[in-house]
Design a protein around this nucleic acid. Sequence first.
DNA 1: CGATAGTTTGACACAGCTCAATAGGCGTGG
DNA 2: CCACGCCTATTGAGCTGTGTCAAACTATCG
Lengths: 242, 242
Amino acid sequence: MLQRRDVHNSDIPALCHACEARHRGLCGALDPQQLIALSKTSSRREVPTGAELIGEAELVERYSNVLSGVVKLTKTLKDGRQQIVGLQFAPDFLGRPFKAESAMNAEAVTTVSLCSFPKATVERMMKESPELERRLLNQTLKQLDEARDWLVTLGRKTAAEKVASFLLLIARNIDPTGGSDTRSKAFDLPLTRSDIADFLGLTIETVSRQLTKLRTQGLIRIENNRHVVIHDIARLERRAGQ
Amino acid sequence: MLQRRDVHNSDIPALCHACEARHRGLCGALDPQQLIALSKTSSRREVPTGAELIGEAELVERYSNVLSGVVKLTKTLKDGRQQIVGLQFAPDFLGRPFKAESAMNAEAVTTVSLCSFPKATVERMMKESPELERRLLNQTLKQLDEARDWLVTLGRKTAAEKVASFLLLIARNIDPTGGSDTRSKAFDLPLTRSDIADFLGLTIETVSRQLTKLRTQGLIRIENNRHVVIHDIARLERRAGQ
DNA sequence: CGATAGTTTGACACAGCTCAATAGGCGTGG
DNA sequence: CCACGCCTATTGAGCTGTGTCAAACTATCG
């Protein structure tokens, strides 16, 4: 244990006090001393919609926790066709461990607040704390599960099912209503139609047509293009093909 | 360290002696004592083409290493549409850690030889050996990278590009020629046209048509339906859209 | 209110699907 | 060794869901 003990044992850094990552995120694996050590080199920042967090084939020196907002991970073919390969919500971890270069692009699709730390510090702590590594493994496994679910959506579902699946995915991850009503759900879409198309492997027009169809059939309501109300989740799930 | 030391330190279990998993697979993380302990509860077996290794929503009590052959991981929608969400080659690890129930189906697409161990033993060893957990994390990260690459293929590539991408994927993972010729490559397809279709999100007919197109254009040669020769890998890569 | 970016709607084209028939590979048994 | 049947793969013809291109509409913000 190389951990220095010259700091008071009990207190949690002010930076971390109200931080969600300390409860549900990776930082929950750290003890107070480790939190203090990490917080010395970590920095919180707020980035606006559209900000590029990591460029494709760019060197990555910092890892981040997403504290609020939504980040899209994209890959692009040479001729410009784009695919979103992951959406990160709070308190997800951002960055590919053990690789210097990023294989994809990360961009804020809403205002995003981040807490980021030097790669080296995190990797050292991972060696010292099996619990931290365990959490990272668990998050990676969860992301793999999600990616594989999405393979089914992209490979085998119709446009209508894709759009329904997307709405349910967002509803599951963004829940301002707190789940008081289990039947219906309301939220602001974090993505534009163009992002939704890139996520579903469709065009903007097809996404738009499918949303209108769901609207005219009374499954959802849309206000101001962004705010969505799902009237009956079970019914939408049936439309999503399971 | 709860590891018993009542066994001779030096020798490696006969079972593991020529095993590839000890070099490139997970077992490489284990010291001789751990190998001996694990080998006591592990068993090797050979399963024929078509054998179901894990059923969807089935309880999983054993993990396995793939020692040779190819395993497909599939998910199925209620109405029977199927999607292959992963292919496992030697020396990949089979099984979802920390989950009792499998979210997908695993089936041998060739004759497969496996070495499997009780879940509990592996999970105990993971707590004792950070190196083992590290390897598992690395394999999971690699699979996540692969799944995300495949999302691009399913979401944004044309049928022609999908088939070319598939041939390159197989060529990369099965290499009987040992890489003597860097320009061309030959191998037996482990999958039927129906499996290829399920992997690419296409129909059998479209796969077949795209293969004949590649054949008539002189990019590949096909013998007996299964044996494929890629004449010029770089040219096929261009057809795969990167 | 105009300007701008995002979204919806319409008309048409085409890639890939469906259905159907044919061809090829391979094991079994005469 | 050939004949038969079975299974898989190929090829063909027509259909349809989604893409393309273009125009109209709507929110938002100076």
